[in-house]
């Protein structure tokens, strides 16, 4: 079985938001909608002050609460672990959005442009999808790229054509993607060699973005 995970090495992330921009470019998300973003967290007290950059987005949970509550079965989990939304089934009740403890879901009610009344840019007009208005949307792990890549015999996480845009764009190598069931994959090796955690694990969702915070103990 394949199970895709995203690994974020917090020791490496510099908070450049290139992944955020790559995601917006790749998925043509509306203004204010960020399927991938990096949080800037300052902690501690002088002189022991630390700054951490935390990439967040849909965690493609093992037990996704968004899927449990969805009344229309629009939210589904694929065999490879990716949580997807059928935009033609979704009724836009936003129940999934309040069920997600990672604030990863968005609902866009109107056709929006980055420059507002000034009009749409050419790429906005070209890539507008009416099916995504009034329904839930979120990170797909670039499932279309993965599907096309796998069909062409490529390996997600290894071959860039089959890898999510955010991972491809990461300048520091902080973001990695791959099959955690494949012991030879880079993500498996990274997780085996370092200490990592998921976010809000106490909620029992089984998040599949893993955060590396230190080397082996």
């Amino acid at each position: 079985m394949t199970k895709y995970v995203l690994v974020a090495d917090l020791r490496r992330c510099v908070g450049c938001q290139t992944c955020t921009a790559a995601c917006k470019n790749s998925n043509a998300t509306a203004p204010g909608v960020q399927w991938r973003k990096v949080l800037d967290i300052e902690t501690g007290e002088f002189p022991d002050v630390r700054r951490t950059f935390l990439p967040v987005g849909c965690m493609h949970c093992d037990d996704p609460p968004c899927m449990t509550v969805c009344p229309s079965t629009a939210t589904q989990k694929r065999a490879d672990g990716i949580v997807i939304i059928d935009y033609d089934l979704c009724i836009g009740c936003a129940y999934c959005a309040v069920a997600c403890p990672y604030q990863a879901r968005f609902k866009v009610s109107d056709r929006l442009s980055a420059y507002g009344a000034a009009g749409e840019m050419a790429h906005e007009a070209a890539r507008f999808d009416p099916a995504m208005i009034g329904v839930a949307q979120k990170c797909t792990f670039c499932s279309d790229r993965i599907d096309e890549g796998v069909a062409a015999g490529l390996v997600p996480g290894k071959d860039w054509q089959a890898t999510p845009a955010c991972v491809n764009s990461c300048i520091s190598g902080a973001l990695q993607f791959g099959d955690i069931e494949d012991k030879e994959s880079l993500v498996s090796q990274l997780l085996a060699a370092n200490q990592s955690s998921g976010m809000h694990e106490d909620l029992g969702t089984g998040p599949n973005i893993r955060y590396i915070w230190d080397g082996a103990p």
Partner: peptide, 26 residues
């Protein structure tokens, strides 16, 4: 009263040297 879960750091990561920091949940 419907505030969401917000985000949390499972552990503050090691940067260069030192040890990891405690979990953060602002």
């Amino acid at each position: 009263a419907a505030y969401n879960q917000g985000f949390a750091l499972p552990r503050v990561p090691v940067r260069g040297q030192g040890s990891p920091g405690a979990p953060v949940k602002p």
